[in-house]
Design a protein around this nucleic acid. Structure first.
Lengths: 245, 245
DNA sequence: GAGTGGTCTAGACCACTAA
DNA sequence: TAGTGGTCTAGACCACTCT
């Protein structure tokens, strides 16, 4: 294998391709160490920044992982060990099965009453400037966060909403007020997380996350909550069922 | 705004944070140019590689886009223009509404009969080594690909499967054989695409994709097809509905 | 021609891990 | 202590766009 410095494909892409093939072909097996960055520099007569850039792409694709002080290793697939969570069911109904003995907890990060900005107001069918709750929550199984959620919720029917309610169960609170959450419409995207989301979910900076924007509906009432939901893929798997109609 | 070179947070993360806030606060609006890389170097007394690394993260998050020879610009949100596609319905039933006048087409890339590898066999409840179909398909609305699909399908009940069937409608073919696709169980992940997927979907290297691994079931028969499905987010939005139980 | 982003170099110092 | 990855510098040349 040679690197062609005069090719129109950048050196770092050539090296990415080469290492990818070593992994795909099985010459490098899960758990194996890649050549160290300095070795790659020497072997291909390139600078370290270039070698690192090639490896960066493999890290982002989840094909290898770096361990400081140790080396870079071909990733092991641990898909089957991760806890499975349905995206097409309300979390409240899946929490029982989720924990597998561990406790599901909520950690409220902030809760404030604010004036609704126009974009949120439009989705909730209220005038801009109406009071709404804004909150950020982290949800964990044991001590591993699986969801970071940021949401805007109608304030009028829920004026006595408290931190305690949110640290326990929002659904239980809503039920006590005599409402039922009927369904939520979600749009799902793959995204690279911002710093805040990375910090909250404890994510390696190179790993993409699932991001849902959700509109939740109350029975006989319509939309009452807009949420941005970020799902942690490192320790959980997200599933859904597709049907005919 | 100052950069603290002696902080434990790396300089490039501080700069990423700063620029993120400029965008979030609206000081930099969609379409606005960021300071050029050389300007950032001078303003914060950092080297260009460091400035670029900060901007790299914003590019990957989709917050800005680079245009060679022009500059780096705050991304415009075009979410509402993208075609919406439900993940919780079979594609066959949504194709009618999907196109909005444009034609939905299939482009078969490969179709071969092969021996089932153990991992696929286990999921299809057949012995390893049984004959199965392996195929790759690209599905497009007009000439924009929205799905790249790679799948392994039982060969026994579908021995006369042809390229023509797959370029038209796989569901129609299955129906002609007297079967009904009941449902499919999907696991959804956010991933950075490999070279093949990037090429197929025409994706910029920095953009993550949605990746579903699906098991499709025939009514009264069980699993008959395993698929890897990659969804193009650049021109489509993917939705689903969550319900109680 | 001037300015932009795209790539690359050849060093450097640091924090961390393992022997 | 030696080797690893993490960060950073101060340059360089290139391809591209706009005026």
């Amino acid at each position: 294998m040679m690197i062609d410095k005069y090719s129109s494909t950048p050196v770092y892409l050539q090296l990415e391709q080469y290492l990818s093939e070593e992994i795909a072909s099985g010459k490098l097996k899960p758990g194996d160490a890649l050549p160290s960055e300095n070795t790659l520099c020497a072997e291909f007569s390139i600078s370290r920044m270039t070698a690192r850039k090639a490896v960066d792409y493999l890290v982002r694709q989840g094909k290898v992982e770096r361990r400081r002080g140790q080396g870079t290793f071909v990733a092991r697939q641990e898909n089957n060990l991760r806890i499975s969570l349905p995206l097409d069911r309300h979390l409240s109904s899946s929490e029982a099965t989720l924990g597998a003995g561990k406790e599901v907890t909520n950690h409220l990060i902030c809760l404030v009453l604010q004036k609704s900005p126009p974009s949120i107001a439009a989705q909730l069918h209220i005038p801009a400037g109406t009071n709404i709750w804004f909150m950020k929550r982290l949800r964990l199984v044991g001590d591993v966060p699986f969801v970071f959620e940021q949401s805007w919720m109608l304030a009028a029917p829920f004026s006595d909403l408290s931190e305690t309610d949110l640290n326990r169960s929002k659904y239980a609170y809503i039920a006590r007020k005599g409402f039922t959450v009927e369904r939520s419409e979600k749009e799902i995207r793959a995204e690279l997380p911002s710093q805040e989301v990375r910090d909250m979910l404890g994510i390696n900076r190179e790993e993409p996350v699932l991001h849902a924007t959700s509109v939740a509906m109350l029975r006989g009432f319509g939309p009452f909550e807009i949420s941005d939901i970020y799902y942690n893929q490192q320790h959980y798997r997200f599933t859904l069922t597709a049907t005919r109609d």
